[in-house]
């Protein structure tokens, strides 16, 4: 009974907190703290994704990727792929999300897309 009451009490307190939060003023300090926490979480997720990509084996044949793409960072490749997806909505991409690909596979994917566009396919 006490456990049930504690759950009930906490649910009521949560409801009150959600409503109270709506009328609380936002201060520059709160904004700064919120930004730091959000940035920390984004950084952490990016690091996890990088680590996962690095662990995956690559299917890329050496020498098949142009130097310009080899020199790009994973973030730049993702940005370019996103840009190409917008410019060429008619293209069918093998992956809806590239986050699970290794860095080499990402480069290979971009090379494939750039080559297709250059050939006018």
């Amino acid at each position: 009974m006490s456990e049930q009451d504690l759950d009930t009490y906490m649910a009521i307190a949560r409801a009150v907190a959600v409503e109270e939060a709506k009328t609380m003023p936002t201060t520059p300090d709160l904004q700064r703290r919120a930004h730091a926490i959000a940035e920390g979480a984004r950084d952490r997720l990016a690091a996890i994704r990088r680590a996962e990509r690095a662990k995956r084996p690559s299917n890329v044949v050496s020498g098949a990727i142009r130097d310009a793409i080899k020199a790009m960072s994973p973030a730049q490749i993702l940005g370019r792929l996103s840009e190409l997806r917008t410019i060429h909505p008619e293209m069918q991409f093998a992956h809806r999300s590239f986050e699970h690909l290794s860095d080499d596979d990402l480069r290979s994917a971009l090379e494939d897309v750039e080559s297709l566009i250059e050939r006018g396919d």
Binding site: M10, A13, R14, V16, A17, V18, E20, A21, M24, T26, L30, Q31, R33, A34, H35, I37, A38, A41, R42, L45
Partner: peptide, 24 residues
């Protein structure tokens, strides 16, 4: 997570948590 995690969302949760801590 990428779509929903904004600074504003974090602000709201911080406010809610402050209120909850105060009450409890």
């Amino acid at each position: 997570f990428d779509k929903q995690l904004t600074d504003t969302l974090v602000e709201r949760v911080l406010k809610q948590t402050s209120s909850l801590i105060r009450q409890v």
